[in-house]
Nucleic acid binder design. Sequence first.
DNA 1: GCTGCATGATGAA
DNA 2: TCATCCTGCAGCA
Length: 265
Amino acid sequence: MPEGHTIYRYARRHRDLLVGREIIAKSPQGRFRGGAARISGRPLLGVDSHGKHLFYRWHRTETLHIHLGLYGRFRTFKSDPPAPTQGTRLSLHTDEVTIYLAGPTVCELIVPSQEDAIRARLGPDPLQAGIDGNTVAEFATRLERRRIPIGAAILDQSVIAGIGNIYRAELLFLVGLDPAQPANEVAPDKVEEIWDKSVYLLQRGVDEGEITTVARPPRASRDKTDRLYVYQRERFSCRHCGGPISTGEMANRSIWWCSSCQTRT
DNA sequence: GCTGCATGATGAA
DNA sequence: TCATCCTGCAGCA
């Protein structure tokens, strides 16, 4: 579910549905009761995303910060919402729509200095390429400081924001880089290629609503790996060379790659 | 019906 | 490195 493209889509959707409207906020589960009470009945001013973080500006000094983590999800109902499930952390209700949030890692009210700190920690977001500091130069600067493997570095949100486990595997395959290659030893042209491909792939994910990396995916397939090159494809052969797809662990997560197409430089 | 795993991240050890 | 947060679903009985 939530890699950067999903978060970006949520921000866009919620901007359309909620900004400028007076919103009734509640916390059916109770864990965010105090925060919900502080924003309820007031108009939402704006919604922004950076990587996997969402920021809802309610007031000059009152911003709702949400991070979905692995499980978090929103559900939107245009009419007659069902009763919220027991785990619903937050419900947002207008005359036209009801949105439920369940399972987030973070759901908190923060002040501007806290938002600044979060944004400063995050690397550039390929979905905001060219805006503010979201540039290939910033990515290169943050990458060359790291001696960890490139497969760990691009999953680190302080290096590049919004990449998750699927994009990590697919990006490294597309640029032909061994995940074990030390980040600080990746050639400048490869760094640029990673950034350019991440801009393209994340934007494609936003446009299509799912992660597709192959050029021409089968039209109606139930298996999501039909749209991918290496992620969870250890039982298939490499689409380029026909060799085996390797799998292992890196940065606490499973990773897949083709050991003949992806090399160290 | 149950088990284990998943597109995330943190904090303790 | 590992447990934890904690939801949904595929795969299996």
